[in-house]
Nucleic acid binder design. Structure first.
Lengths: 341, 341
DNA sequence: TCGTCCAAGTAGATCGATCTAGTAGAGATT
DNA sequence: AATCTCTACTAGATCGATCTACTTGGACGA
């Protein structure tokens, strides 16, 4: 190979000199614009390959208006829904030749502010944020003045100037409750989720709305908590000890439901419990669980694609309107709700 | 608020003028170097705040050697181990003031090449890559000439000039098999994983090594496949139909094990099967599963931290040696292996 | 033959920070 | 008094691409 890898740094000027054209012409080749003969383009491209030229986007961003990148700041990438969202986003952005640069706040608002700064320093063309817990309205308002389009995902903070894409959790919640009402009644529990976040608030609101239509069912237990299996396990254990766990349970997500089932098995090792459980998310394990979980599925992928569409649109037309989109979830009926047994 | 948000763009020159100093001085304040009075620093910082100055890293990267960012290119961010790895990495980098820019190849080598390019165009100070399936040695060799330190994680491609951090899967495999040998014998199955990837190769190697020490146990079934639950379910169904599923099963990961258990439940709805299963990863659901999974746990977090250390070290000392680190996994004994029942 | 138009390409200023090579002035040393 | 050192600060070149405003040479119409 004739890779001149010891040359400190190959610039467009080097390429231009090698190809016998001016820097301006080489630049036109890079951006596939201007009127140049195909022969010139090929010669320049050949020189780029031969010299191992690497585009210097920082230098370009001094004059060009776009960097073909958007910043993605998520609260927790290890959350399955979030991961799925970024995949949908990246797929949709790839078609437009835009790269997503992802970073994690780990639910720290300090880190969130730092990452927003950092992304803006890198001249991203747009910003997608899943706000960390504790993000205040003031912080969100500041985002509307950063100079690039911003989309908030998953956790709603309604602020003028910011677009929002999320799941219609009110419908999700009522959907869960309505399904249970078709074949059960009595006290209902809702377990998990942080009260300061939209998803829990909306799901509970939807559940209450649905239960209000029935005279013989009511939300008796409503306990907030972390959205994971170990919290679900501990909490269900405690309620079982008290004898205060209703036989109808709606869990914030599948993870909490897994924990609840573990507690039920500990309490009754001899066989399945007669509880009815509905949860949210439909992670991969939900279908494999014993019993297979009835769960409210929402497509993170779809949310991601929608975010990409909005961002690309607003980058194209910065004065366009901000958008609010809710993706409607669907119920996946399996066995945990009790109706197929 | 006195936010002059309509000003097109605030530059260091504007800040300097506002604070009554030169651009050079303002730059020294930014970088916290040089000898300046505390009074001058404060005055400049006040001007930055007042004018809403945003650092332009692209411009800086024309002259400065560092961008305080490293590119992270992963094959699939929705994989729990990968997500955990990025979290460890980001935590360790944050302490050094370095930002990780993460992107997903979705297991496409084309996209991988594109993302490597894109990261280099952005002048990242280092690169962490979990190679996509199908990454050739030639591709990896090209990575050693990119001019910044590169660390390969998880999927080993031994190439001079590249560092590697991964899990000691040979030990993991032999550990799984040795544990099973303490209370079972006969035919063993290994299910899942792509043959072209190191993790499967190494785990099988470790298993074979351990089984070789026993006269009454052997690897009878060895089927590669995607590392997910639905493949595990289908494959176990097929083997059960054939009557060729050994009662001792090692699964590539917990997901595959979940699928296998689903198939077992379908086949014997009346109660638990007498199989012994060990898998890898110890995802959150493993402890909640019925039966709780015995699994080989490896810390993605630890791998991420180690990668950060190596990258930061090599950025500091570019001529330092490349490093190869293996993190030793540990077995988490629960009930699926049959020994606690 | 002249003027116009167009395709193909270029020179040089420019973006915003950083770096080099200084300067001015105060205090210490001989 | 002359020299040296040190602190605090600065002018101007510079990084690598892009953009504006040209030039050049040929084709075409009248």
């Amino acid at each position: 190979m004739s890779r001149p890898s010891n040359a400190a740094h190959v610039t467009l000027a080097d390429v231009a000199a090698h190809a016998g054209v001016s820097r301006a012409t080489a630049s036109l080749v890079l951006r596939d614009t201007g009127s140049l003969t195909e022969d010139t383009r090929n010669r320049v491209r050949a020189s780029m390959n031969e010299l191992g030229y690497v585009y210097h986007r920082g230098a370009a961003s001094l004059r060009a208006s776009r960097t073909q990148s958007i910043g993605v700041i998520v609260s927790d990438i290890s959350n399955g829904f979030t991961a799925e969202l970024t995949v949908g986003l990246e797929e949709a952005l790839a078609a437009a030749g835009v790269v997503a640069l992802i970073a994690n706040t780990l639910e720290s608002t300090d880190r969130q502010e730092l990452l927003v700064r950092s992304m803006l320093e890198r001249q991203v063309d747009g910003l997608l944020i899943i706000p960390a817990i504790g993000t205040t309205r003031a912080m969100a308002e500041r985002l509307s003045t950063v100079g690039v389009p911003v989309v908030i995902a998953s956790r709603d903070i309604a602020v003028p100037g910011l677009s929002y894409v999320g799941i219609d959790n009110v419908t999700g919640g009522s959907c869960a409750a309505e399904h249970l009402l078709t074949h059960t009644n009595g006290p209902v529990a809702f377990l998990g989720g942080f009260t300061e976040l939209g998803p829990r608030q909306d799901r509970v609101a939807g559940i209450k709305r649905a239960l209000a239509t029935a005279s013989d069912a009511w939300l008796e237990v409503d306990i907030p908590g972390p959205p994971n299996g170990s919290w679900g396990l501990e909490t269900a254990r405690r309620l079982l000890d008290d004898g205060s766990l209703p036989p109808t349970i709606i869990c914030l997500n599948d993870q909490v439901a897994f924990g609840v089932y573990r507690a039920l098995r500990e309490a009754r090792p001899e066989g399945p419990s007669p509880v009815r459980v509905v949860s949210f998310d439909d992670v991969a394990e939900a279908a494999l669980w014993e019993p297979p979980l009835t769960t409210i599925a929402a497509s993170g992928h779809e949310v991601g694609v929608r975010c990409a569409d909005i961002l690309l649109g607003r980058i194209e037309a910065p004065d366009g309107p901000t958008v609010r989109t809710l993706i409607t979830p669907t119920i996946v009926v399996r066995e945990s709700c009790g109706c197929l047994v």
